[in-house]
């Protein structure tokens, strides 16, 4: 499989938009205070959660780059470190050729996973505030706001309160806000969560326009189809580490056509070895209780599997192979695996 496991996929001639080297970060979280403590002082205990653990990654300039991993794998933490809002406990970060700083943030657009809008501001006021924070003013700012509202289809709502917008409209407004200062690097944290397919397509159309004008896009997501469809390169992140990096085609290169997910808690190891040797069977991965395998033809594989398993199989899922299967093959865990989530 043509997968670069050493995180140096970017051709040496292309300057990286973002580079992280041996990056680590741990959250020191406090437990909730217990009720009724007579002292009035909250009883708290510290625990540390390792969000990133020696991550090394290069994001080529001008790319649409996907960070694919389950919730809690460290994707959002990485974005916050790229922006410089958190400091790593170890390792180095460079964004647009420099360490993160306030000046660098002026060249970055950031779309948070959750809605980040003041419901009591109008759309125009929202963009105006953002433009002023990014040093825009006067006629230029007014014109840019009008153009952006037009381009995201919200021009007729410019003076409406944000609270009157639908979820999809709010996302479009946030996209306009991200694009307002013409960022060179756009960071997207689960940007299409909760959007319907039309809204998702419209959002991506506008993002691709920005990419074509030179902006690098880093997408943190656990949506396989989104990374597969829109990203030129994808990095698999698992428990704060880079598991693999490459183009979607490279990452999927070793997969057979059909993916079969089998819930089989008591799979005998010898039988697993036997199945792996069947003709038309690709890499077989066992992560209790799931057996994952890609095959040339599920229609031939599945009846044979049931015959061999007798009554040991509890559930089975069949579909065309995707990046999720590549992820499972490489990482040995599903994208919905949240063990170790932060």
């Amino acid at each position: 499989m043509a997968v670069d496991m050493t995180a140096t996929a970017a051709p040496p001639t292309i300057k990286p938009a973002a580079q992280v080297q041996g990056l680590s970060f741990a959250y020191g979280a406090r437990t909730a205070p217990s009720a009724g403590s007579p002292s009035g002082a909250s009883e708290s205990a510290k625990r540390t959660v390792q969000a990133l653990d020696g991550l090394t990654l290069d994001v080529p300039s001008g790319a649409v780059f996907g960070l694919l991993g389950p919730n809690g794998s460290g994707k959002s933490t990485l974005l916050s470190l790229l922006v410089g809002l958190r400091q790593p406990s170890a390792g180095e970060v460079r964004v647009l050729g420099q360490p993160p700083s306030a000046a660098i943030r002026a060249r970055i657009g950031l779309l948070f996973q959750e809605t980040s809008l003041d419901p009591l501001m109008t759309l125009r006021e929202t963009l105006w505030l953002h433009g002023r924070l990014y040093g825009l003013a006067g006629h230029t700012l007014r014109t840019t706001i009008a153009q952006l509202l037009e381009s995201v289809g919200l021009a007729d709502r410019a003076d409406s309160l944000v609270s009157t917008l639908s979820g999809g409209m709010k996302r479009r407004l946030e996209l306009a806000r991200v694009l307002l200062p013409s960022p060179q690097l756009i960071l997207l944290d689960e940007p299409t969560t909760g959007l319907d397919p039309d809204a998702e397509a419209a959002l991506w159309a506008r993002l691709h326009e920005a990419n074509q004008t030179g902006a690098t896009i880093i997408l943190a997501t656990n949506k396989v189809h989104e990374a597969d469809k829109h990203c030129q390169q994808v990095a698999f992140i698992h428990r704060g580490r880079l598991a693999a990096q490459g183009t979607p085609a490279e990452l999927k290169a070793g997969l057979k056509r059909d993916a079969v997910w089998v819930e089989w808690p008591d799979l005998p190891p010898t039988l697993a070895d036997e199945i792996a040797a069947w003709e038309g069977v690709g890499k077989l991965t066992w992560a209790h209780p799931t057996l994952h395998v890609t095959v040339d033809a599920a229609s031939a594989f599945v009846p044979r599997l049931f015959q061999a398993a007798e009554d040991g199989i509890r559930a089975i899922r069949i579909r065309e192979s995707t990046l999720e299967d590549a992820y499972f093959d490489i990482v040995g865990a599903s994208l919905s695996d949240q063990r170790g989530a932060v």
């Binding site: 306030a102 809008l117 806000r177």
Partner: peptide, 18 residues
């Protein structure tokens, strides 16, 4: 609190200002 709960505070903190 309003800015924190609406998420606007994190947008402001992610701007090019301390």
């Amino acid at each position: 609190y309003r800015d924190r709960d609406s998420g606007l505070m994190r947008v402001m903190l992610a701007s090019p200002h301390s």
